[in-house]
Design a protein around this nucleic acid. Structure first.
Lengths: 135, 135
DNA sequence: ATAGGTGTATTATATCACTTAATACACTTA
DNA sequence: TAAGTGTATTAAGTGATATAATACACCTAT
């Protein structure tokens, strides 16, 4: 697993998934968790591409999706900035969470599991995940 | 969405995901929910391929994965049968559920959500899903 | 004005996963 | 023997992903 720190953002890139998708997910996560501050300047397309050893077009694809998410804003000739609106981040988090949950519940139902089963599993899983940091 | 009934199994095939994966998931679900009985005979590779309008090789790929799951057994020259072992089905359901949950919890944590957030969301989602049948 | 940094667009090329098609073989049952 | 099983092989086509090489319009600092 490639581990790279670019500005405020930590990246772990591998080849299990499309590169643009990994960049997208990890920047989304950094913004959602507040690891990158609101209004902060993002690395330029070329800079990030060079640091992550990938093509500028690939990074571009992730950046365009971030703007569609409402998480970033482009300023012509200047660069890309994290949105200054806490609401935008909140809305994004809520929407994506809903999307993840729908998919997850569908998976659970396809296995014939009930809500109680799921709640219990989730609880166990969160307990198990305690204290696991930077493994 | 293509809707096909083949023997005891209902299929809904589209082009959003790999075909072999959709076949795999839907047969897994049918077995996990007990919609196909233990020991029951599966449609032959060629028959299912014809009914679902896809290539036998594609169906084969799904069938081989099903056997690796421990959900089916092949009898040379005869056909493919659902396993007669309830334990196998149980183990499969538990393992796959754990896998789904790990991925899901990772997604939730990447959005900075806590266990309480998740439990509440799940609860709401299950309530919302009540009464939605055969839409 | 110029140089260098922004995001963006285009064209070409390469690779890989997925899918289909056409056969062929060994096995089992009627 | 004939028909139906799973399986294997080879060839071909398609689309998503990624890279490479350029080019352009915009902004800012020198």
């Amino acid at each position: 697993m490639e581990k790279e720190q670019v500005g405020t953002i930590r990246f772990q890139i591998d080849f299990s998934q499309p590169l643009y998708e990994q960049v997208l997910d990890q920047v989304r996560s950094s913004i959602a968790k507040g690891e990158i501050g609101l209004g902060e300047k993002m690395p330029s397309v070329r800079e990030l591409a060079q640091d992550l050893k990938m093509n500028p077009n690939t990074v571009m694809r992730a950046y365009q999706e971030l703007e569609r998410d409402g998480l970033t804003e482009k300023r012509r000739g200047q660069g890309t900035y994290v949105t200054s609106s806490p609401e935008r981040v909140h809305i994004f988090r809520r929407d994506l969470a809903a999307q993840y949950i729908n998919a997850f519940v569908a998976q659970m139902e396809s296995l014939g599991l009930t809500e109680d089963d799921v709640q219990e599993y989730i609880h166990q899983r969160f307990i198990a995940g305690k204290g696991e940091h930077e493994k």
